[in-house]
Design a protein around this nucleic acid. Sequence first.
DNA 1: GAAAAGCTGAGTAATTTAGTTGGTTAAAAG
DNA 2: CTTTTAACCAACTAAATTACTCAGCTTTTC
Lengths: 157, 157
Amino acid sequence: MKLTTKGRYAVTAVLDLALHCEKGPVTLADIAERQKLSLSYLEQLFSKLRKAEVVKAVRGPGGGYLLGSTTENISVSEIIDAVEEKVDATQCGGQGDCNKGMACLTHTLWQDLNDQVHGFLKGVSIASLMERSAVKQVALRQDAGPQDEPQIVTLED
Amino acid sequence: MKLTTKGRYAVTAVLDLALHCEKGPVTLADIAERQKLSLSYLEQLFSKLRKAEVVKAVRGPGGGYLLGSTTENISVSEIIDAVEEKVDATQCGGQGDCNKGMACLTHTLWQDLNDQVHGFLKGVSIASLMERSAVKQVALRQDAGPQDEPQIVTLED
DNA sequence: GAAAAGCTGAGTAATTTAGTTGGTTAAAAG
DNA sequence: CTTTTAACCAACTAAATTACTCAGCTTTTC
């Protein structure tokens, strides 16, 4: 498991999708615009996300992407797994015999560590991220105090 | 926070150091040999680790590196922080106002997520990794059954 | 059948990772 | 006090990954 900006882009994009797809498919062009990413890069990421069934595509005019599952059932780890190449941590093919056992043990350890991080991120759903988002926006609105044009929580652009 | 092979190399190297420094300083050449890494790359990593006081250097013949603290007090997150560049996730300088609030919220979320992973890895010490290592070796020995030259748990090369 | 979108692949620029080279200092040993 | 050992350091290069561009194709709606 890797954790880089690529994974962040993917999570951000899926979250953006989740926040906008209630009324129908969302185009990558829209997400690219909102998140300031290149359309083609998003296409590449979503190609992987679609193959991993994190998202669903709807082709043709009025088309775009929808979530492949409920927000509760999509975890951050799924998204990251879909887009990041898996680091093949083993030089020994999992035989446990590289470098007289020593090096292999240490990278088995790393694998364990990764598994733990993975397990942790598996427990974080898009739904929970959205909830935080809503909470944060409410918090921001409260910080700003009463206004003529309240920064409403609708989350539509 | 990033989580890449670079961080893995650093964790592996520090773990190797921890497993071998009981009888005195360990040279990078030894670690490079055991872990199959280039000496110069290790030098770069250890330069950062030393500045972060994860390790201590002893110069001259018979010199090498020692741990900067007890194995209980060195966490995986410290090691990774020392070697990986910090991803500046904010395009807005933390003002919370980039892209009309929306993008900024999502990357604040990412920041939160990172903080959680970070907190998690802060709880994993070198000591606990070593313990796992010892346990694993015992397990391996047991799997292999009784032997003439038992794969003893001494952990010295 | 034109337009809107997804889909695909080849290519490229920028960044990061990993390694190389060629030194210099500090300390120990002889 | 000279040699050796090993850390320290900086500039450079190579390889890999990330991010993007371009150019076209396919599916679906109007």
